[in-house]
């Protein structure tokens, strides 16, 4: 019996990406079932599926102590490939197919404004919170500010400035919290912030910046809005990495 189990596990591990398709498919099916039966469609199936994904990731982290959520369990390592940046970016670009060019042209300026506002606000808020918790050196303040932008901007800024590993870990955690909150909360707040058209989706992407958060949040709100939000969000991390160790560091050092 255990031999059979081992043989099955070996197959699952060998065909890891195929296993991932099956597992994710089952998760999505179950989520839509819950959405239908328990919430009568009020809570969107994809929102539940994303929540289940995060829950699985937590379980994976607790069980294995690794950093890649459920993908750290060997037979489920294909989920890491399926949800990794390669296929994620591939699918995001595919959502742009059929989008009309004038939608982007119309919102060009506000897209840029939202990007700058998003990066600036994140750094300021992150630095203020760090200040409130007793950090006084410009390097730590800028690094945690970067973490409030995205979980990539934080460590990139921190290592460029030579921040301590404790501060860098904090900045990553802040960025992860942000990305998860955006995934979970977007469908709920969407009606209150007018997030129902391509224009506001583009602005939303620029303000939030976290590609995974925006990707998940908009998918759970209205899949038609995904390409608009994703478009601006993909510029955010690069912009943050550019401005963080330079402009923001100098500005924060001048203040403290």
């Amino acid at each position: 019996m255990t031999e059979l189990l081992e043989a099955v596990l070996a197959v699952l591990a060998k065909y890891s990406l195929v296993t991932a398709f099956a597992v994710v498919g089952a998760t999505v099916w179950f989520s839509y079932l819950i959405s239908d039966r328990l919430t009568r469609g009020r809570l969107h199936g994809s929102a539940i599926a994303i929540l289940m994904g995060l829950l699985l990731a937590y379980v994976g982290g607790v069980v294995t102590g690794g950093k890649k959520g459920i993908a750290d369990i060997e037979v489920l390592s294909g989920i890491g490939i399926m949800g990794g940046s390669m296929l994620r970016d591939f699918a995001i670009v595919a959502t742009a197919f059929g989008v009309r060019m004038d939608e982007f042209r119309k919102t060009g300026i506000s897209g840029i404004v939202s990007l700058l506002a998003g990066v600036v606000v994140s750094f300021i808020v992150g630095a203020c919170v760090a200040f409130a918790f007793g950090y006084r050196d410009a390097v730590s303040l800028t690094t945690i500010g970067g973490g409030a932008a995205t979980y990539i901007v934080g460590p990139v800024t921190g290592s460029a400035l030579g921040a301590s590993s404790e501060v860098i870990a904090l900045s990553v955690a802040a960025g992860l919290i942000k990305s998860m909150l955006v995934m979970i909360m977007t469908p709920f707040v969407a009606p209150y912030i007018g997030l129902d058209n391509p224009r506001s989706a583009l602005i939303f992407g620029g303000l939030m910046g976290t590609t995974s958060g925006v990707a998940g949040g908009l998918a759970a709100t209205d899949p038609e809005l995904v390409p608009y939000g994703a478009m601006t969000a993909t510029f955010y991390t690069g912009l943050g990495c550019l401005l963080g160790p330079s402009v923001f560091f100098l500005a924060i050092r001048a203040v403290v």
């Binding site: 991932a20 398709f21 994710v24 498919g25 998760t27 999505v28 994809s46 599926a49 994303i50 929540l51 289940m52 994904g53 995060l54 699985l56 990731a57 937590y58 994976g60 982290g61 607790v62 950093k67 890649k68 959520g69 459920i70 993908a71 989920i79 890491g80 399926m82 949800g83 990794g84 296929l87 994620r88 699918a91 995001i92 595919a94 959502t95 990553v172 992860l176 990305s179 998860m180 995934m183 995974s212 990707a215 998940g216 998918a219 899949p223 995904v226």
Partner: peptide, 15 residues
Amino acid sequence: YIPIVVAMAASQDVL
């Protein structure tokens, strides 16, 4: 796209 995003969520460092 949505299934891929679900897989992405499942491979985040939630812990």
